[in-house]
Design a protein around this nucleic acid. Structure first.
Lengths: 345, 345
DNA sequence: TTTCAACACGAAAACGTTTTCGGACCGGTA
DNA sequence: TACCGGTCCGAAAACGTTTTCGTGTTGAAA
């Protein structure tokens, strides 16, 4: 077990000073050609790499991004991570990930932990519980300390900083419009409780689309789910007693559950009822029937967030001028909204 | 924007020395009761938190775990991360995540990046390309530098270190046995190319189970897939021309594709053909029919890996004695292997 | 009064870098 | 000879901690 090579070691071996070694390696003109070569050769031979921690301390920069997410077993967030990782790595940054598990306390803890020198800035999607409490002091605090924050997807209006979102309402409207264009008039929505920002926005999009097409909103066709663990039962129950020709679900899980509920009711998707989902993931792609959905482009959101954060860290961007990047959604049409004759099996 | 409070600042404000402040905060008996109280009160008031980077440099420990994974948009790895995060956080460690995207070069780069002081040790699941190249010098290198490594899931025999795996062969055998017990005799397997260690092991489990039950292996029922992106076509093609009463797939995606292929062939699952998958994820749970599967307990694997690594970092464990933890698999029976009368729809 | 603990605190080194500043040496010019 | 300007290098400070060691003050014992 050889300990890591340091400047001091090299200096000792070559009988020069530490500063000489440092300067030689950084090609300072202060150092004579021959010693420079000697040092560089030695460093290369023994594979010297500067110690990141020491550099961080010296430069007061860690080249590390703190990422705090509500969950990770979820295609959307996974793709966001991929996007962040991609650009962060390209620019020489590391990504430190913490999971809040949708808990406010863990979110606060994680941020405090990372704020003490571990990272230069944050990318964050706030926990459900945080949205419910509306307590954002931990965000404001790190911002006050001069650490830039970029909010992703689940943003909060009260905090002024860079943000990356999709136009949830527009995406939802697009989905619902697609259902309407397919001839549906009795469209149910399966959504989340209102304090989940994106859920509320998607609900709004649903409502807007209906109004725009002069379809009267039927409150009885709106199901708001609090806990995803009991969603299947609630959806079964909900759909059993209602006659609809289409269902819009604000996430893949709800959509899959809806299909299941409809089938168990003896209906067929898409022949009898169209179903469209939100957030394109493995489930939508592989489901039978494959699910039409609104693509959130998670990787792109992550990439954009990382880019915004790094630009701010490297001050190429105007201080005090924050921007909100809106990533386009796109409608992916698959089998679940394909209105055709029932195929002969 | 207030800069972070440091010991020096506190010392200056309170007109004592830095060492006094440090000792007071750590409750050293060297410091008189009154100054101690004064310092602690001040620190609390202004919410002093020691700088992690400085601590890392001083202690030569970062309390950070480097995690290098092939991919993340994949339920299994996502649950592994959850498990690691959980115990790491509990023990006061951070987790730095890097993605190799199954590329050898990126895996090497990531490890070199993290090895220069950023982390105390590694948890790693090797990239597909690395398994193919059989080049593990980057692993040996960090180990030689005294950084412990724990391999997870995709392990390599050539490296001596702690490992966490499941008994892939046994899990696969369990799945196949379940099919046999349900009366199937003509069982196809959809697996990966052999250099993917877990794929090969699962294939072996399949073979073992058949032999144990005196079913002759039919090489024609074995499909090895290299690239998941073209898997659907290959699986369609494969199943179209073969008559089987069951399919064992080594992952969820293949299983879903298999069902799709069978259905498009006019067959029904599970009435005509049973299908069982490996790795319990969202897809298996939500699919229609829901897929029976072998649960890998990813969170548990991650938790165990983190535990092993931390134990080694904190030297509570015998040096030079490495262990391989084998996490139990469990068979989850769902609709896709439920042999019943065809329900009346 | 002297001596000696005990007590309370500060100075300094160390972790591994980078950078500023100063200095030694050498050649050339006045 | 005296001075000056380069060239090449080293000492030291700094980043924010912890810890070892030293030191000054006090009070009590001799």
């Amino acid at each position: 077990m050889k300990p890591k090579l340091t400047l001091k070691q090299i200096a000792f071996e070559l009988d020069v000073s530490v500063s000489t070694v440092s300067k030689a390696l950084r090609d300072s003109p202060e150092i004579g050609e021959d010693t420079r070569q000697k040092v560089k050769a030695f460093a290369k031979l023994y594979n010297y790499k500067p110690n990141n921690i020491a550099l961080s301390l010296k430069n007061r920069k860690t080249r590390t991004i703190g990422l705090v997410l509500p969950e990770i077993v979820h295609d959307f967030f996974a793709t966001v991570i991929s996007g962040i990782e991609e650009v962060a790595n390209k620019k020489g940054y590391n990504v430190i990930i913490c999971l809040s598990n949708n808990s406010f306390d863990r979110e606060v803890m994680n941020m405090e932990m990372l704020a003490n020198g571990s990272t230069d800035g944050f990318i964050l999607s706030v926990a459900k519980e945080t949205q419910q409490k509306r307590d954002y002091h931990h965000l404001q605090e790190v911002i006050n300390q001069g650490m830039p924050v970029v909010l992703v997807d689940r943003v909060v209006d009260e905090i002024i900083c860079d943000k990356v979102i999709i136009d949830d309402a527009e995406g939802a409207a697009k989905a619902v419009q697609h259902l309407i264009d397919s001839g549906c008039r009795s469209i149910a929505i399966i959504t989340t409780v209102d304090y989940v920002s994106v859920g509320k926005l998607r609900t709004n999009g649903y409502l807007n689309a209906l109004r725009k097409n002069n379809i009267t909103v039927n409150e009885d066709l709106i199901l708001k789910i609090e806990d995803i663990d009991q969603s299947q039962e609630q959806i079964d129950e909900f759909l059993k007693s209602r006659n609809v020709d289409a269902v819009f679900a604000v996430n893949e899980q709800f959509a899959a559950s809806a299909v299941k509920a409809l089938v168990s009711k003896g209906l067929t998707v898409p022949e009898d009822v169209l179903v469209i989902s939100f957030s394109d993931g493995e489930l939508s792609r592989r489901f039978m029937p494959s699910l039409s959905t609104v693509n959130q482009h998670g990787a792109e959101m992550g990439a954009r967030a990382a880019q915004l954060l790094i630009e701010r860290l490297e001050r190429v961007v105007d201080e005090e001028r924050y921007q909100t990047a809106i990533i386009n959604t796109s409608l992916i049409e698959r089998e679940s909204t394909l209105k055709t004759k029932k195929p002969v099996v």
